[in-house]
Computed example of a mutant assay.
Amino acid sequence: MLLCLLLMTLMPLGQSVPIQCNTNFRDLKADVIEVLCPEGCLHQEVAVWGTDIYTDDSSVCKAAIHTGNLKNSGGRVRAEKRPGQDSYHQSLRNGVTTRSYGAWHGSFIIISDNNAISPKSTPQTSPVLVQCNTQALQLTGSKTEVLCPAECLTQGTTVWGTEIYTYDSSICRAAINAGKITNAGGKVTVEKRPGQNSYQESTRNGVTTRSYGAYPVSFILTSETIAIPPTSPSHTPIVPVQCNTQARQLNDSKTIVLCPEGCLLHGSTVWGTEIYTDDHAEAQCKSCKLFWSKTAKDRKTKCLAHHAIQAESTIDIKGSLRQRQHRRLQ
């Protein structure tokens, strides 16, 4: 892992990071990264948990073979961070059998790259124009770039799921929920995925999705740039804070704050992951606007930088981690 981190530090921006077959996403310490996988990972004894969305301790290269974005001869793939899921589903694809698992606190997906996979589909020259109520099932093909109009935040049909959505969900509203576009619209790529046993509800970026049981077909959304989620109305004041400012020191239940530079190395202790205790330091980030929200239900806090990915479920990290480590050692 130290070698991988050293390579990432020395590698010029825009180049692939060489990794091994057993490198997992958590080792890469990045939200989005392009890696260079070696040859022969198909037959390496390394584990992968999930289908399309994988636990962050899964092998990146073997997961890429499983999705069809990488051949056993190796090559470049891009991986992107995702929130933890309540469950992960096993499947057999392209010679790789993945395992199922319960709740886990971190995930990742493999982003399709036409240069890294066999050319089964022809890249589109222009995006497909869609409406706010266009559903993924109305598209043809397994991967389509679409252009969403503005104002889909308050228009369009229902969305079921979080990060991975049922195939009859509104594409553009799902894209807002996923943080891929804002209410101003924009381009996003829709990728068809197998059905899931369950879909999780969430409220993100102004779009509330619904939970659902088993559904035969799903889709995920990718984009070249990560959109900044819309914040509160512009008249809401921005409160300057220090690196050691705690959430409990704020007066309102929702506050936009401005973090100073250098909080990566300064500030007080932070307890939690994705959901934090209200006595943690507000700013473990570098000069960004932060959105803080306290829920009335569990009185815990969610701390979201604009480039972060929100997790909608509270996970007992200590218990889950110990139980899982114990299972894998057996």
Results as ranks from 00 to 15, higher is better:
Ile53Met: 06
Tyr165Ser: 04
Ser223Met: 07
Leu304Arg: 06
Glu163Gln: 14
Arg93Glu: 12
Asp31Gln: 12
Gly267Glu: 03
Val46Trp: 00
Lys71Ile: 04
Thr225Ser: 12
Thr314Tyr: 13
Asn115Tyr: 08
Glu80Met: 12
Ala175His: 02
Lys300Asp: 09
Arg204Gln: 15
Arg78Ala: 06
Cys303His: 08
Gly75Arg: 04
Gly50Asn: 03
Ser223Asp: 14
Lys294Val: 06
Thr97Arg: 12
Leu3Cys: 11
Gln284Ile: 10
Leu290Glu: 11
Thr9Cys: 11
Ala79Asn: 09
Gln330Ser: 13
Ser293Val: 05
Gln323Glu: 14
Ser73Glu: 15
Val128Gly: 04
Ser287Ala: 14
Val128Leu: 14
Gly206Arg: 03
Gln330Lys: 11
Thr231Trp: 04
Tyr276His: 07
Arg327Cys: 08
Asp168Trp: 05
Lys120Glu: 13
Gln90Trp: 06
Ser198Trp: 01
Thr269Tyr: 12
Lys187Phe: 05
His280Asn: 12
Lys254Pro: 01
Gly213Asp: 09
Leu329Tyr: 08
Ser234Gln: 12
Lys289Met: 11
Thr157Ile: 03
Ala64Leu: 00
His43Ser: 15
Ile111Cys: 08
Gly179Phe: 01
Gly185Gln: 01
Asn94Ser: 08
Arg82Ala: 05
Tyr54Glu: 00
Ala174Phe: 00
Val146Ala: 00
Leu10Ser: 13
Leu265Ser: 14
Val128Gln: 11
Cys4Tyr: 09
Tyr101Ser: 11
Pro38Tyr: 04
Ile19Leu: 07
Thr273Lys: 01
Asn244Leu: 03
Asp279Asn: 15
Asn72Ser: 15
Gly185Asn: 04
Lys294Thr: 13
Gly50Asp: 01
Leu304Tyr: 05
Val257Ile: 02
Thr157His: 09
Ala63Trp: 03
Thr273Trp: 06
Glu145Ala: 09
Leu5Trp: 07
Tyr88Lys: 01
Gly161Ala: 06
Thr203His: 09
Lys180Leu: 11
Ser107His: 03
Gly161Lys: 01
His89Ser: 13
Tyr165Thr: 01
Val48Met: 10
Ser320Lys: 08
Ser223Leu: 05
Ile226Ala: 13
Asn22Ile: 05
His105Asp: 11
Thr269Met: 10
Leu221Lys: 02
Ala64Pro: 05
Asp113Met: 03
Tyr276Lys: 00
Gly95Ser: 07
Cys263Ile: 00
Lys143Thr: 13
Ile315Asn: 00
Thr182Arg: 02
Gln124Gly: 13
Cys243Met: 08
Lys62Glu: 04
Thr295Pro: 06
Ile65Ser: 01
Val35His: 07
Leu42Gln: 07
Pro229His: 06
Ala175Gln: 02
Val146Trp: 00
Ile111Lys: 12
Pro240Glu: 10
Asp57Cys: 07
Lys180Cys: 08
Cys288Phe: 07
Pro18Met: 04
Asn69Cys: 07
Cys148Gln: 00
Leu36Ser: 15
Ala64Val: 01
Asp56Lys: 03
Leu265His: 13
Lys254Gly: 03
Asp278Cys: 07
Pro123Ala: 09
Gln284Pro: 05
Ser16Cys: 05
Ser211Gln: 11
Gly156Pro: 06
Thr209Val: 05
Val146His: 02
Leu129Thr: 15
Ser142Arg: 11
Ser126Lys: 15
